[in-house]
Simulated assay, not measured.
Amino acid sequence: MSAVIKHSEERLMKVLLAPVISEKATFVAEKSEQVVFLVTRDATKPEIKAAVELMFKVEVASVQTANRQGKEKRSGRFMGRRNHTKRAFVCLKPGQEINFNEEAK
């Protein structure tokens, strides 16, 4: 947990926005022992690792990120765009687990 010391706790609390609960995220969680989070667009891999370790008290093996472009949407004759997002695929060390049902209590 040495990564926690390098970053301010206030910043780390703002890095993780929400867990991604979808069919694809569930498949990845079962197959690869990974958890998917929606993170801020300027978050770095070390910050994401430190934030997960701080908030969920688990050990993180690795972090992979994916930038997603927002979809173009139409409202009448005007074209708009949804916001771009960034997702983090967090691989936990063997024996580690994040249970979101217990965290909500």
Rank of each mutant, 00 (worst) to 15 (best):
A3W: 06
L92W: 07
A18G: 00
K105W: 01
E53A: 05
K45I: 03
L16R: 02
A3D: 11
F100K: 05
S8V: 01
R81N: 06
R11T: 11
V4Q: 13
A50N: 12
A29K: 15
V28T: 13
I48P: 01
D42H: 05
S2L: 07
Q34F: 02
R77Y: 04
V58D: 05
I98G: 06
M1L: 04
K49R: 15
V36L: 12
V52Y: 08
V58Q: 04
E102R: 12
A3F: 08
K6W: 03
C91T: 05
P94I: 07
F56C: 07
L38T: 12
E30Q: 15
F37A: 06
S32L: 10
T85E: 09
K86N: 10
E59L: 02
L54C: 00
E30W: 11
P46V: 09
T40K: 14
A3C: 02
G80E: 05
A29W: 06
M13I: 00
A88F: 06
R82W: 05
F56G: 04
V35Y: 03
I48E: 02
H84V: 02
S22A: 08
D42S: 04
R82S: 08
V28E: 15
N101A: 11
C91Y: 05
S32E: 14
H84F: 09
V4T: 13
S8N: 13
